[in-house]
Nucleic acid binder design. Structure first.
Lengths: 235, 235
DNA sequence: CGGGCTTTTAACACGATCTTCATAATCAGC
DNA sequence: GCTGATTATGAAGATCGTGTTAAAAGCCCG
């Protein structure tokens, strides 16, 4: 059984140590950072199973960090547990508002912390197991998000991470047209500084892999792309 | 809250019971049939929200049932979840080919089954919601911005990007007259350095494509164009 | 640091679309 | 009906958007 990786972002060193000690004792692999920017990088690099995040980092950018993590498709699915000082109720709301999955309020007992962490992780696993993670089936194309797997006409096809996200996103909203910059935001990242036409190239490789089904991705000239749906909407 | 109605077509009585038990426990209203022909009638009579269909009904007509349901406009929009035995991969493909919306493979856990059923039902709802948003319907012309699609008298018509924007803009402000330069600004671009008369040409191609409904775009001599306000000839 | 993979950029060609222009049709006022 | 102005039409050239390819730039793992 592999140990779950947890990133802790917390500026108060004594609290950080406390958390780290307890997590390690439970068998988790722990990585830490004491400021937001660095923590952000850490998460992106390490792709942990969970993030413990102090809401009140210096410069109060804990929320900012959370927002950034949740807006990036790559890190969106990593659960985040907020650590907040007591009485910061409004802050908690804010934290949950930007996508945090749970929170603990200082001062907290190690027990409580562990309970939260375990609960959130278990929640995620459960989701995976029962396949609640979306499976999209359209036109003989099966897109299994939980397993990160695609089959076309029954044959498994491998997609790279970006290709998969793009295909998945389009297929999740069939019939709907998306402009290139919209796709960039949703698939590559909020603040991605990449050229629009990049999408074209990804679309091309996706189509190539979709092979016979390549035309489920339709080009709307002058606008963008969309996933075909044959069902005519009743007026 | 009304309970969603689900029809289950499955010949193995123990599996049928299992499914029925679980669905009922989740609060669904369940109707069952153990053969294809009867099941077909049941669906038509009851118009359920979802159909659970065994792929391998005696006489292997599960696929046939699916095909029939999907080809009938009345039942086409009812989502179908296929129930298949493991290793019937090719059958799954077949099932998907005839329009099934998802599938579960035997043996399945009740949890998994429920997850699928819930997911498919949720998916359907979502679709309805967002489809209703950015749509303009006037006379027998439907302009769907999200899909970038237009239907005239029910027939889909393709418009180029500029044509679409022009038509959409006019239709969004029915009865109001716009001068050519106003239309240029709104449709082509603020700083477009194009001749006024260009609009005429676009209007022409739009009218051409609108065919029988061409005169919803009225010419106001000496001023510009407008989308007709009052109903024209019905049908 | 090197090697394989993925992502991004750049460049070209082709076709679709936009724009212009010349001409025909229409309109309004006399 | 005639006349000048305005709009519709058709066709030709200019422009733009996309598909495609190849190569550069990142990235990860050992």
């Amino acid at each position: 059984m592999q140990r779950e990786k947890i990133v802790v972002i917390e500026d108060e060193s004594d609290i950080l140590e406390l958390i780290q000690y307890n997590l390690k004792r439970e068998g988790y692999s722990v990585l830490t950072s004491t400021n937001g920017e660095e923590g952000l990088d850490l998460v992106r690099r390490e792709n942990p199973d969970l993030v413990l995040l102090d809401l009140m980092l210096p410069g109060r950018d804990g929320i900012e960090v959370c927002k950034r993590l949740k807006s990036d498709p790559v890190s969106r699915n990593i659960p985040i547990v907020m650590v907040t000082a007591k009485g910061e109720e409004s802050e908690v709301v804010l934290g949950l508002g930007v996508g945090a999955d749970d929170y603990v309020t200082k001062p907290f007992s190690p027990k409580e912390l562990m309970a939260r962490v375990n609960a959130v992780l278990r929640r995620g696993q459960l989701k995976d197991e029962q396949g609640e993670g979306e499976r999209i089936v359209r036109d003989k194309i099966v897109i299994d998000a939980a397993r990160h797997e695609v089959t076309v006409d029954g044959d498994p096809v491998t997609f790279t991470a970006t290709e998969f996200r793009l295909l998945h996103f389009l297929a999740a909203h069939p019939g709907r047209v998306f402009k290139r910059d919209q796709l960039l935001n949703r698939v590559i990242g909020e603040d991605a500084f990449v050229h629009d036409r990049n999408i074209d190239v990804h679309v091309r490789s996706i189509r190539k892999k979709l092979n016979r089904r390549r035309d489920v991705i339709e080009t709307i000239r002058g606008v963008g792309y969309r996933f075909r749906d044959r069902q005519g909407a009743p007026v």
